[in-house]
Amino acid sequence: MKFIQLFCFLSLSALFNTKALQGDKPEAVVDKQGNPLKPGEGYYVFPLWADNGGITLGQTRNKTCPLDVIRNPEAIGSPVYFYEYEHDYIPTLTDLTVEIPILGSPCSERKVWKISKEGTRARFWFVSTGGFPGNLFSQFKIERLEGEHAYEIYSFLYCPSVPGTLCAPVGTFVDTDGTKVMALGAGIEEPYYVRFQKASTFTQNKNQDFSGV
């Protein structure tokens, strides 16, 4: 009798453990066509509600290196690359390495995103470059906006999967010269909502204005 009870218990445990494992697969981030984002492929990051263009890199603050992540005020922006090593797609709410590998940059640092403390300003960080894959300061997440009609709308988080670390949405800070710099922390309450477009499938017309995308 005890053997039968033990067998039933182990069978039920295996069943529930299997369901738990099946439910652990994270949701894929998708582009505007509904296709999952792929690691190592470039995507334009379009604003959802803005009069500005997409994400790229620029010299801000004291106009020195490393480059910061900004919203391009004039054009489409630069392709952004995402890396995650456990799936063949880019998942939501999972630690990611993010990179904008611009050629001919005036700065030699790697173009991997990281958070960078801004002087003595309390609880405020710019999203900058010069990071390293796997480093705590370079672990970003993509979060989907909740809602029936928000399937392809996302925002960035700096929220490493390490207990006790900072967890905050990435929004926009307007620099002294008007540059819109991606930042997080004190005073950055509204996430920057975006959609993704695979760079290799996007046709750009000459002088096309993308400010309303």
Rank of each mutant, 00 (worst) to 15 (best):
P191M: 05
N52I: 10
S11K: 00
L57F: 02
Q5K: 01
G147V: 11
W125H: 13
I142M: 10
T176K: 09
F126Q: 13
L48H: 12
V213I: 11
V162F: 12
N72G: 05
K117R: 13
S13H: 03
L48A: 10
A28C: 12
T18Y: 09
G119A: 04
Y151D: 15
S211E: 08
K19S: 09
Q59K: 15
G119K: 10
G42V: 01
E27H: 10
G187M: 10
M1G: 01
T92W: 04
F137T: 14
I102L: 06
V112Y: 02
N207D: 15
P47Q: 08
F156H: 02
F126W: 15
T94F: 12
T165Y: 07
E143D: 13
S11P: 00
P106C: 11
D95L: 03
E148P: 05
S200A: 11
F196P: 06
I70A: 06
D31Y: 02
Y44E: 00
C159T: 05
L157I: 06
G212Q: 14
Q208F: 13
Y44K: 04
G164E: 08
A20Y: 09
M182L: 15
F82S: 05
A186F: 11
S11T: 04
T179M: 13
G77W: 05
K198G: 07
E190F: 14
S105Q: 01
G34S: 08
F137S: 08
P26D: 08
Y158E: 03
E143T: 14
F196M: 05
K117G: 03
R110L: 03
Y192C: 07
A183Q: 03
K206G: 06
W113V: 10
R71L: 14
D209A: 07
M182S: 02
G104F: 10
N135M: 08
T56C: 14
G53W: 13
F7E: 00
D51P: 01
F124L: 10
K2W: 01
W49G: 07
L145M: 12
W125C: 10
L136K: 07
T172L: 14
S200H: 01
P73A: 11
A14Y: 04
G53L: 06
G187E: 12
K180C: 08
R123E: 13
W113M: 04
E189M: 09
L157E: 06
F196V: 01
D95E: 09
P36K: 05
S116R: 09
T56A: 14
G54Y: 06
V30I: 15
T129M: 05
D31R: 04
V170F: 05
L136F: 08
D209I: 12
E41C: 08
I76P: 00
T176V: 02
V69W: 06
N135E: 07
P66D: 04
Y43M: 05
H87P: 02
A50C: 12
L96I: 11
T165M: 09
A14F: 06
N17K: 02
K141M: 14
L166P: 05
P73E: 12
K206I: 12
F82D: 01
